[in-house]
Design a protein around this nucleic acid. Structure first.
Lengths: 137, 137
DNA sequence: GTGATTGCAAATCTTTTGCACTAAA
DNA sequence: TTTAGTGCAAAAGATTTGCAATCAC
């Protein structure tokens, strides 16, 4: 994956029409460093940047991007869904108090032993979440 | 923790009055093998066993038991909360298709390397979820 | 043009809450 | 008694959906 491939190319490659809303949301998420968003936070960010887009479209876009492999959904809190612009193999720190999420590069966690998947199944992904207590950065 | 301590003692120790509803739900969950429930599934199970209890009380009870350390909440699917009667250190297999959850004993996953928690924080828990694709058992 | 996409509002689903009623201590 | 616990229905959040209007190709 080429992280700096222009937004337009990424949408084309994903088979998604580059509409004004998708382009704007993609720019908010993919320009700059990797980030974690919720539908609510992305919608708020859009409004701050004077991008007119409905919350329903934000939800739709997040799911379309996730299906297209542009985003990865992280299940970490029953109250809301997080999406991560970093789709490569990695893990997470999570501050339960504040809802802050931080990436852990995959080479920082090495599993010495893993169970074999039950017969007939294959491992789709291994998620490691380190839940933290204590002060927020 | 003594897994076979009578239900009544467990509730007393947790400071929870042994009401008809709590006793019945506790029996459904704690008698027999460890299991994973959702509010919905436990409510359905109660109805099957002719236990009259409202869904609101099931939710309340699950959270009270979790606060008391009798249950552990597992965040695995944004669509609903799972509760595990096994509160000891362990991990999970998850079949995304069917919502089936299966315990992985803690000695089946050994982490050779872990990142240190950010300054000022402590690790509250490490959750490992192995997401599976393929046939259901 | 034509089919994909959007916005809005309404619907859905899970979970929580207010409050009068009931039961445990 | 006195206080905790319950049930119901209503409320609250997050997410989804139906459908007419709009946009990309």
């Amino acid at each position: 994956m080429r992280p700096f491939r222009p937004i337009l190319d990424r949408l084309h490659q994903a088979g998604l029409r580059p509409t004004r809303q998708r382009m704007a949301l993609a720019k908010l998420m993919f320009e700059g460093r990797d980030c974690h968003v919720t539908a609510e936070s992305l919608h708020a960010q859009a409004i701050t940047h004077r991008v007119r887009v409905s919350l329903a479209t934000v939800y739709n876009t997040l799911h379309q991007f996730t299906s297209a492999g542009l985003l990865r959904e992280i299940v970490i809190d029953a109250a809301r869904s997080y999406f991560d612009t970093n789709t490569s193999d990695h893990h997470h720190f999570y501050w339960e108090g504040t809802g802050l999420l931080e990436d852990i590069p995959s080479d920082q966690i090495i599993m010495e032993k893993l169970p074999s998947p039950p017969p007939g199944t294959t491992i789709k992904r291994i998620d490691v979440v380190i839940r933290l207590a204590g002060c927020t950065k």
